[in-house]
């Protein structure tokens, strides 16, 4: 290994900067005091107990889970189509079409939220509901799904499916027996990432949520009450734990996909 101690030290400091907020979360979530400040006053699980009994929170959580699940499935389905098309022969306009689908990556989120709000309320005259949030979340999740699945599909030798067909399989059989197992880790990883994005999103949800808020909208409402701060800490601890767990699972599947396809791991989700 090369020396580069300067860079190494910098990297460690940078990681501390990245992780500082997350590491503080459980510290205050399990702290007895109602004020978020040092010194810590003592261990307590009372904030978690309070969460357990807050009905409005449970409703928000159910909404968020429902929205995130449907979004993950929709975005991954559409992302799979696009990613697979990306590896197939080009036709006029293919690049443009795929580029357009990736557009939300470079659009300010608030613009997407506002634009959809106008369509839903003014053009279609529909009521806001969980489904309007799902529709918008799917728009912003598709690019991420495509980015993840592109890796999976581009690692595939185009001869794999031909070889399967050459050996007597139909086109569908070739996809099911060869392509699907090889990209499955990518699909799982896409499902999880889209799930997390949807679960986390606040901006779009605030604009498009119906009468029942999603989890982030609910948390945002809580931030206005000083005495709710420890509650947010407890809730944040739970959410971060869930996110990290899902992320580790996603990374596990992504790596397994890389290993299966027999390629060098170059790492990273994006």
């Amino acid at each position: 290994m090369r020396r580069a101690w300067g860079l190494r030290t910098y990297a460690i400091i940078y990681l501390v900067f990245l992780y500082a907020p997350i590491l503080l979360l459980p510290l205050f979530a399990f702290n007895d005091a109602a004020i978020i400040a040092f010194p810590l006053t003592g261990f307590s699980t009372r904030w978690f107990e309070q969460l357990w009994t807050t009905q409005a929170l449970h409703q928000a959580l159910r909404n968020s889970l429902f929205i995130a699940s449907i979004t993950a499935i929709l975005a991954t389905l559409l992302g799979t189509c696009a990613a697979r098309a990306g590896t197939m022969p080009s036709f006029p306009g293919k690049r443009g079409a795929l580029g357009f689908v990736m557009l939300p990556l470079v659009l300010p989120e608030i613009v997407i939220a506002v634009a959809l709000l106008i369509v839903v309320r003014q053009v279609l005259d529909l009521n806001l509901s969980n489904w309007t949030v799902i529709a918008a979340h799917t728009v912003i999740c598709i690019p991420f799904s495509i980015a993840i699945l592109n890796g999976a599909f581009q690692n595939l030798d185009p001869s794999f499916e031909e070889a399967a067909m050459d050996l007597g399989e139909t086109r569908w059989g070739a996809f099911r027996l060869v392509t699907l197992p090889l990209v499955l880790p990518g699909i799982i990883s896409s499902l999880l990432i889209c799930f997390i994005i949807s679960l986390d999103d606040f901006v779009i949800a605030q604009f498009l949520t119906g009468s029942n808020p999603t989890m982030p909208v609910y948390i945002y409402g809580l931030t206005r009450f000083v005495d709710a701060l420890p509650l947010i800490m407890a809730l944040g601890t739970i959410l971060v734990t869930i996110s990290i767990t899902l992320l580790i699972i996603a990374e596990y599947f992504r790596r397994r996909g890389v290993a299966r396809a027999g390629f060098k791991d170059t790492g990273g989700f994006l």
Binding site: C81, F100, V101, A115, A135
Partner: peptide
């Protein structure tokens, strides 16, 4: 390939292009 691009493209046209025009 075109048939595969269609679903995500149509989705994005309806829920991205159309709203951007509306705005």
């Amino acid at each position: 390939a075109a048939a595969l691009v269609a679903p995500p493209l149509i989705y994005s046209l309806l829920l991205l292009a159309f709203p951007l025009v509306a705005i």
